[in-house]
Design a protein around this nucleic acid. Structure first.
Length: 510
RNA sequence: UCCUUGAUAGCUCAGCUGGUUAGAGCGAGUGACUGUUAAUCACUAGGUCCCUGGUUCGAGCCCAGGUCAGGGAGCCA
């Protein structure tokens, strides 16, 4: 019977067949230990010379990393193994032998791994990330479908830049004089559909042509954008929070194995499910960034300064240890080659850590300066988001932004005309913005004024203005960056691992 | 676009103040070992030191220009 590794727990004592790829192989006299992966998990398979035919044992000898094969054997419980089971092989057929698979068992650099992304996806860590990504996508759909939202597809070719000045990808549209732009947001179309359906969401690709090279940017990413008629900003925030709680609850329920592989500490995810998100006015958030207001006894500026002190101390420690160990090697205190190799390896590791520390030593002072000198009225920069979110252990919502720094379509706060009813959700642990949204402007005259203010061409927004001319209602919505929430939930160092084939500035292959 | 760090074996990296024939670990190949968990041990093969020019008796190392990559800023989800 053909089965998969994830089902083996229920098949102990049975003889079954697995189809997959050789992840690793160890041998001893008369024994091969094969780690098989089949897309659903990994399992150790033992080939014992005493209990298989000569051909089967010869086949086992031929297995190399990533050779595809079909194994038959008895499923046996074994607590020492990861899945708690082991396969005692009786038959082994090779499907296709892999020669010199490039991604080996030891460490690799990011440039090499990215150029082998098509193969890197097979490794355990990437497997775990992609499974969590899948849970998140499914969870978003089930949440909105259960809440009575209708999924719609917004166009990818658009005739205008929806928010004005962003850098968009431009393509010829049938003839050379007509330009189309790859969509940077489906929101305006979502608003139209919300007036037809009530509550809708889009889930599709989004393109930004900014020449950004940082851990939080992609040129092509997936965004989910709900839009709800008769919602104000507070209902919108309730919706964001409920959706994010739902997603985190699903990941915690379905992906414990994957979170373990990623060594993800889940307390922050549990907080997200169980605790209400702090909702801060822009004014409060600014005071926190500038260090004028503490959060749970933590201060943005002094905590950064403390970090910097710790890094300075660590750099001294590392340098001393490198000095000590290299002196030992030089002075011939160490006799055995093994000891020398061990110390050399330690030194290399310390040098790597030193580089990381020095990087932070360069970055933190500029972050401190940027936080201290934050000018009231500006949007948050990347480092400002890092500074504020490090103080919390669950996502926070910042709302009521100065209207000048936000998009033209956001509703002006009726109580204070300086502000617009936008809301950003910042993920904790330094991750920053993963959701941006708000209540939309309903007043036709104000909207026209805003379009003029932003220097946008009125004619491409006429259809959008019709939404206000014919039965305008209060409505709100938001955009969730899929890769950004995957990055945060998995606690990845870079967004490029959160999508199968990342598209970034200067990178198009594979 | 700007700031910053880097490019040496298939991979990850050493290489001192410029000095003879370029080093390690991993991976690959061969062999040993009957329960391994990135197994271990022995041996073998493996190099356009990113490119172009310069300084020098002599350049992997110094200088100039370029290419590519990492990190950060701006911009953004």
């Amino acid at each position: 019977m053909i089965t998969t590794i994830e089902k083996l727990q229920q098949q102990i004592g049975q003889t079954i067949t697995l189809q997959g790829w050789t992840d690793n192989k160890r041998s001893s006299k008369g024994l091969f230990f094969i780690i098989l992966r089949d897309g659903t998990g990994r399992c150790q398979c033992v080939v014992d010379e005493a209990s298989v035919s000569v051909e089967v044992f010869e086949n086992a000898k031929k297995l190399t990393q990533e050779t595809s094969c079909i194994l038959t054997g008895l499923v046996k419980a074994d607590d020492r193994q990861l899945g708690g089971v082991e396969l005692q092989v009786t038959d082994l057929q090779i499907v296709s032998i892999a020669i010199d698979y490039p991604i080996t068992k030891k460490e690799h650099g990011i440039e090499f791994l990215m150029s082998n992304r098509h193969l890197w996806l097979r490794s355990q860590r990437q497997w775990a990330i992609m499974r969590i990504r899948n849970t998140i996508i499914y969870s978003i759909h089930t949440y909105f479908q259960n809440e009575g939202f209708m999924q719609m597809d917004a166009p990818i070719f658009t005739g205008n830049a929806s928010e004005g000045t962003s850098n968009l990808f431009e393509v010829d549209y049938f003839d050379k004089d007509t330009k189309a732009y790859l969509s940077q947001s489906g929101q305006l179309y979502g608003e139209a559909m919300a007036m037809a359906m009530g509550k809708i969401y889009t889930f599709g690709p989004t393109f930004r042509a900014e020449k950004s090279k940082t851990r939080r940017h992609l040129s092509e990413f997936w965004m989910m954008e709900p839009e709800m008629a008769f919602y104000d900003i507070f209902m919108n925030m309730d919706c964001i929070e409920a959706m994010m709680k739902h997603v985190c609850r699903d990941v915690l329920a379905k992906n414990r194995t994957e979170l373990n592989i990623l060594e993800r500490d889940v307390t922050v995810l549990e907080n997200t499910v169980n605790v209400g998100f702090p909702r801060l006015l822009y004014d409060e958030a600014v005071a926190i960034i500038k260090g004028e207001k503490d959060v749970n006894g933590k201060n943005s500026i002094t905590s950064l300064e403390d970090d910097l002190k710790m890094i300075d101390a660590r750099i001294l420690e590392i340098n001393n240890e490198i000095q000590e160990r290299s002196d030992k090697i030089k002075n011939g205190i160490l006799k055995k080659q093994g000891e020398i190799n061990f110390n050399q390896a330690k030194i290399d590791g310390l040098k790597q850590e030193l580089k990381d520390c020095e990087e932070q030593q360069r970055n933190i002072p500029t972050w401190i300066a940027s936080a201290k000198n934050f000018e009231y009225g500006n949007d948050f920069g990347g480092s400002d988001e890092t500074v504020i979110t490090r103080l919390f252990d669950l996502p926070i919502m910042v709302y009521n932004w100065p209207h000048a720094v936000k998009a033209f379509y956001l509703k002006r706060d009726p109580n204070d005309a300086r502000f617009a009813r936008g809301v950003d959700v910042l993920a904790p642990e330094g991750y920053g913005e993963i959701v941006g949204g708000g209540e939309r402007e309903t007043d036709l005259e104000l909207l026209i004024e805003k379009i003029h203010e932003h220097g946008l061409p009125m004619e491409v927004f006429e259809w959008y203005l019709d939404l206000r001319r014919f039965g305008s209602v209060p409505h709100a919505g938001f955009g969730l960056g899929l890769e950004r929430i995957v990055t945060w939930i998995c606690k990845l160092p870079h967004v490029r691992e959160a999508i199968p084939f990342p598209r970034m500035y200067g990178n198009l292959m594979p």
